[in-house]
Computed example of a mutant assay.
Amino acid sequence: MVLGEDSPLPGSAADVEDLVRLLRGHVAQLGARTPPGTPALLRTQQLCSDSLPEGFIPSRVYLVRLAEATQELMAHVERGGPGPISVESGRRWRKPTVNVLRGAVFALALACLVFAASVPRT
């Protein structure tokens, strides 16, 4: 919402505060998935700990900087940067795509049809 080329800057101070609160919530969620001491996390947390500046231009500049830092942190998490230590030591399965699920359902239905056709009628 903040970094889009066609996105207008928020007009009121309340809108800026709402967006900053939303971005800080995203940082908290992403921070849980990022190991402590990661440079992207430290930069973003430093921005989050700063107070929202007074004035129209400084508050919008802060909002954009926070959005860029959050986006950088999100890219780090999506790239598969090292995550927090997990308790589970099993293999993590990827979520199958819709077409894989459709194929599995079709194969199961076909197998049921073949089985039903092979059973003798009485």
Score class of each variant (00 low, 15 high):
36 P>N: 00
50 D>K: 14
34 T>N: 02
23 L>V: 03
82 P>L: 12
31 G>V: 04
12 S>A: 12
84 P>T: 11
34 T>G: 04
48 C>R: 02
60 R>Y: 05
44 T>A: 13
69 A>M: 11
84 P>E: 08
85 I>N: 01
31 G>K: 02
80 G>I: 07
21 R>Y: 05
29 Q>W: 01
56 F>M: 04
53 P>M: 04
83 G>N: 00
22 L>A: 12
28 A>S: 14
43 R>C: 03
52 L>H: 05
72 E>T: 14
38 T>Q: 14
22 L>I: 00
51 S>D: 10
43 R>T: 13
36 P>Q: 02
80 G>Q: 11
72 E>I: 03
59 S>L: 09
30 L>F: 12
22 L>E: 10
69 A>N: 11
24 R>E: 06
25 G>S: 13
71 Q>D: 15
63 L>C: 07
44 T>L: 04
16 V>W: 08
66 L>H: 04
50 D>Y: 10
79 R>W: 07
39 P>T: 09
71 Q>W: 03
68 E>N: 11
44 T>K: 05
21 R>K: 08
54 E>T: 10
40 A>D: 14
33 R>I: 00
62 Y>P: 04
51 S>A: 08
78 E>G: 00
37 G>Y: 05
16 V>S: 06
30 L>Y: 08
81 G>M: 05
63 L>V: 10
88 E>D: 15
67 A>D: 04
73 L>K: 09
89 S>R: 12
66 L>A: 03
